[in-house]
Amino acid sequence: MGFKLLSKLLVYLTASIMAIASPLAFSVDSSGEYPTVSEIPVGEVRLYQIADGVWSHIATQSFDGAVYPSNGLIVRDGDELLLIDTAWGAKNTAALLAEIEKQIGLPVTRAVSTHFHDDRVGGVDVLRAAGVATYASPSTRRLAEVEGNEIPTHSLEGLSSSGDAVRFGPVELFYPGAAHSTDNLIVYVPSASVLYGGCAIYELSRTSAGNVADADLAEWPTSIERIQQHYPEAQFVIPGHGLPGGLDLLKHTTNVVKAHTNRSVVE
């Protein structure tokens, strides 16, 4: 069995187990497998329904001669939608809004960016022009300005110390501490036991640490421990890039980060 097929099978099995364990909360999309990078042309966006009122959005972007996937989250909030992270750029984010209108038909009224990198804030200006209120932590807003990236308009308070959590509509926002970046936030959907790890969490097929220019490698494993301790009931975990899975993604990420750190020390 090929690795790609095995990865998709694991996603399907995880979703099936969740649907059985929580039949009222989960209505997993039966329309197909989780979209992969090879299936999404740059400039297009796919939506994948995880649970009743919960979707991931998947886009792709060219970077350094390669094409990478990027995940975000959409959560229903009454007759409105909360968006977590842009679709990595203005063109993708405009396509995301169009796809949401086509498939869901509810307005996106608020959006949260989970850290300051372009795959999370690139497209904020498109959201703002569409009347979406954009939010991020003060740290993310400051770092985005320093980096020359787009800056969300509103500040999220109460997320300055490791372990801080605040309720934001249908989700809980959690600051686990520094990891992929010093400002990275985690998003949890309690009604569906869905954990969105953003770039602080890796997919299972990833074996290298990737972009760690703004990471705190020493603190990252401790931050992941905080996530595990705060959300032990999480059933569906979405990484910032690639295929979702279960809580095993947290341990896998820790292993990859520690291996990278150990290699760096040896070198």
Rank of each mutant, 00 (worst) to 15 (best):
G163E: 08
E145D: 07
A130V: 09
P138Q: 13
A66T: 12
F236K: 08
I40W: 06
A95L: 06
L73Q: 06
A19K: 15
L159M: 07
T261K: 08
P152R: 11
A192I: 03
V124K: 13
A130H: 15
A200Y: 01
G89W: 02
T253F: 01
S31Y: 02
A90S: 09
T222V: 11
V266S: 15
I17E: 03
A130S: 15
R226S: 12
H230A: 12
S113Y: 04
G198C: 01
V171I: 05
V126M: 04
L47Y: 02
I20K: 13
G53I: 05
P221K: 14
H252A: 08
V237F: 03
Q49K: 12
A98E: 11
E33K: 09
S27G: 09
P190Q: 14
A15R: 11
V124F: 04
Y68P: 04
G43W: 08
M18Y: 14
G65D: 04
I186D: 00
K251A: 06
S30Q: 04
S193H: 11
G123N: 02
G131P: 02
W88K: 01
R76T: 06
D52V: 06
E99L: 14
S30E: 09
Y188F: 12
L6E: 05
S162Q: 07
N262D: 11
A19V: 09
L24A: 11
G210P: 07
S27Q: 14
V37M: 11
L204I: 13
V257Q: 12
G245H: 15
L73V: 05
I40D: 09
L82F: 06
E233I: 07
A111Q: 04
S31Q: 13
G72V: 00
E44M: 10
V37I: 08
L9R: 08
E172Q: 09
A15G: 08
R206G: 06
S113C: 04
E267G: 12
S38T: 05
L82D: 13
F174E: 05
Y175F: 06
E80Y: 04
G131K: 14
V75S: 10
T134F: 05
W88M: 11
G105H: 06
V171N: 00
L250F: 05
H154F: 14
F116K: 12
G105Y: 15
S31K: 14
L6A: 08
L13G: 11
I17V: 04
S137D: 04
K91N: 14
V256H: 14
H57Y: 06
S193P: 10
L127F: 05
G78D: 08
N149D: 12
A213K: 11
H57R: 08
T254Y: 06
G131Y: 15
N255V: 13
A51G: 11
G53C: 05
P244A: 07
T140V: 10
R141I: 14
L249P: 00
L73R: 00
L195V: 06
G158S: 13
D77P: 01
D216V: 10
S191F: 14
G169W: 06
G198K: 00
